[in-house]
């Protein structure tokens, strides 16, 4: 315990002496962990986005204005009987207009002459990934062409979130690859930086180390202050990055949520804490490993 106090004291006095390199080490760890953290938070958000988009996947079928009640009822019956379908909701022309008025930012709806919007059927699915096969089955149905808004272009009368999901997936996989490359690079840079600070610290105290060896200080005791220095740099860097990320998250939830209400940003508090823990752990590993690496080469005891 007495040695631990000594290690901390030595680490601090040494950090003061080599302030610029220590500062550089802290900043490098901070930036590396910040990027890792931002990447982790972003992938958390994206995962949740994908999930919510998937759960929102529904098939909208736009109906002809003059569709007969009988056709509509039997078509609805056909849809409800499909095993993949959970609910089928009919939305009339009036309801459709109401909805449009609610979502529209301008009062353009009031200037409309009559109601141009079609009625529609909203089909929601039990399993979002079956959307394509359900759509194929609907389009193969005999009644389909007779109920839809534009029989001449059946593709335009049935809408589903296929494009959104595919785009989202392709974007996230690209982001992921870029981030992983960046993280590896930055971890490497942080390791080198820590290695360098500790090496300088060792060189600055060569004489002291020689005397310590001479009078029989144990190897652990000689290494202690340097390990402690690397550890402290890592912990400070990790703390800074955790603070920054938690500030960013708060900002994101408060401000971006109001600007982009359709973007669901709700990170679980638990997963955030997990991210902080991972960042701290990664920082400590980088710090300890970097200083051990420096000592292996310069502190042959």
């Amino acid at each position: 315990m007495r040695s631990l106090a000594y290690f901390i004291k030595e680490a601090f006095s040494n950090s003061r002496k080599n302030f610029s390199t220590t500062f550089g080490g802290i900043i490098t760890i901070f930036l590396s962990l910040l990027v890792i953290g931002v990447f982790m938070v972003a992938s958390l958000i994206i995962d949740q986005m994908i999930k919510s988009v998937e759960s929102q996947v529904s098939i909208s079928i736009y109906l002809h204005d003059d569709v007969t009640d009988m056709d509509l009822e039997s078509f609805k019956g056909f849809l409800s009987n499909m095993p993949e379908v959970s609910t089928v909701v009919y939305i009339s022309k009036e309801q459709s207009l109401e909805r449009f008025k609610e979502q529209a930012t301008t009062d353009i709806a009031d200037q409309l002459d009559g109601n141009p919007l079609p009625a529609l059927l909203e089909v929601s699915l039990r399993e979002p990934d079956k959307v394509q096969s359900v759509v194929d089955q609907i389009m193969a149905n005999d009644l389909f062409l007779s109920v839809i808004d534009r029989p001449d272009a059946p593709q335009d009368s049935i809408k589903y979130g296929k494009d959104i999901i595919e785009k989202l997936f392709s974007i996230t996989s690209t982001i992921r690859i870029v981030c992983i490359a960046l993280v590896i690079l930055l971890v490497f840079v942080a390791l080198i930086f820590i290695n360098n600070t500790i090496r300088l610290a060792i060189l600055a105290r060569r004489k002291e180390i020689a005397i310590m060896k001479l009078v029989g200080a144990s190897n652990g005791f000689i290494r202690g202050p340097f390990l402690m220095e690397g550890f402290l740099q890592a912990v400070i860097g990790a703390g800074l990055s955790i603070g920054t990320i938690s500030m960013l998250c708060n900002y994101l939830i408060k401000n971006v949520q109001t600007i982009l209400p359709w973007l669901p940003i709700n990170m679980g508090q638990l997963s955030l804490w997990m991210i902080y823990l991972v960042l701290l752990g990664a920082g400590v590993v980088i710090g300890l490993f970097g200083s051990l690496w420096a000592m292996r080469r310069y502190l042959k005891v």
């Binding site: 060896k213 029989g216 200080a217």
Partner: peptide, 10 residues
């Protein structure tokens, strides 16, 4: 190697 410090204390 780890015994060396104890040798040197003497």
């Amino acid at each position: 190697n780890w015994r060396v410090p104890y040798l040197r204390r003497n």
